[in-house]
Simulated scan of single mutants.
Amino acid sequence: MTITTRRAALAVLVAAAPLFTPLAAQAQQDVGLILNWTPGADHAPLFYAKAQGWYDAAGIDLDIQSGKGSGLAAQNVGVGAVEMGIAELGTAFLARSKGAELTAVMALYANSPFTLYWKKSSGINGPEDFPGHTLGNPSGDAARVMWPAFAKAVGIAEDAVSFVNVAPAAKMPTLAAGRVDIISDFYNGHDQKVKEFGEDLGHLRWSEVGLNPYGNSFIVNNDFLAENGELVAAFVEVTQRAYRACVDNAAPCVDALLDNASGLNREAMEDQWSRVMELMATDDTVETGLGWFGADRIQATYDLVDTYFELETEFDPATAFTNDYMSQDIKMTRP
Rank of each mutant, 00 (worst) to 15 (best):
T5E: 15
R6L: 07
A8W: 05
A9P: 00
L10V: 04
L10E: 01
V12P: 02
A15G: 08
A16E: 07
P18I: 05
P18D: 13
F20W: 09
P22W: 06
P22Q: 06
A24L: 09
A25M: 10
Q29F: 03
D30T: 15
I34K: 07
G40F: 05
D42H: 13
H43C: 13
A44I: 08
F47Q: 03
F47E: 07
Y48G: 07
K50W: 06
Q52T: 04
G53N: 08
G53T: 02
Y55V: 01
G59L: 09
I64P: 02
S66Y: 05
S66G: 12
G69L: 05
G69Y: 02
G71D: 06
A74W: 01
Q75C: 03
V77H: 05
G78S: 06
A81M: 04
E88L: 07
L89G: 09
S97L: 10
A104L: 13
F114Q: 12
F114L: 13
T115S: 14
L116C: 10
W118A: 15
K120E: 14
N125M: 11
G126N: 13
D129F: 13
D129M: 15
G132Q: 08
P138E: 12
S139W: 05
W147G: 07
P148A: 09
K152Y: 02
A153L: 08
G155V: 10
A157V: 03
V164M: 06
V166Q: 03
A167I: 00
A170F: 00
K171A: 01
T174S: 06
T174I: 05
T174N: 01
A176Q: 05
A176L: 11
R179D: 15
V180G: 00
I182V: 02
I183V: 12
D185K: 00
N188E: 02
N188R: 12
N188Y: 01
G189F: 04
Q192I: 01
F197W: 01
F197K: 00
F197A: 03
E199F: 00
G202A: 04
H203I: 01
R205V: 02
S207R: 12
S207Y: 01
E208D: 14
L211T: 06
N212E: 05
P213K: 09
G215P: 01
N216M: 10
I219C: 03
I219G: 05
N221Q: 08
A226C: 11
E230M: 11
L231Y: 03
A233D: 04
V238L: 08
T239I: 07
R241G: 03
D248I: 02
V254K: 01
L258N: 03
D259E: 15
V276H: 07
M277I: 08
E278W: 12
A281S: 13
D284P: 05
D284L: 09
V286S: 07
E287M: 10
E287R: 15
E287G: 08
G289A: 14
G291Q: 09
G291D: 13
W292N: 10
G294W: 09
A295W: 04
D296Y: 06
D296S: 11
I298R: 11
A300Y: 09
A300S: 12
A300P: 04
D303H: 11
D303V: 11
D303M: 13
D306R: 15
T307S: 14
Y308G: 07
E310S: 13
E310M: 14
L311N: 06
E314R: 11
E314Y: 08
F315I: 13
D316V: 04
D316S: 09
P317V: 14
P317A: 13
A318Y: 03
A318R: 08
A320R: 15
N323T: 01
S327H: 00
I330C: 00
M332D: 00
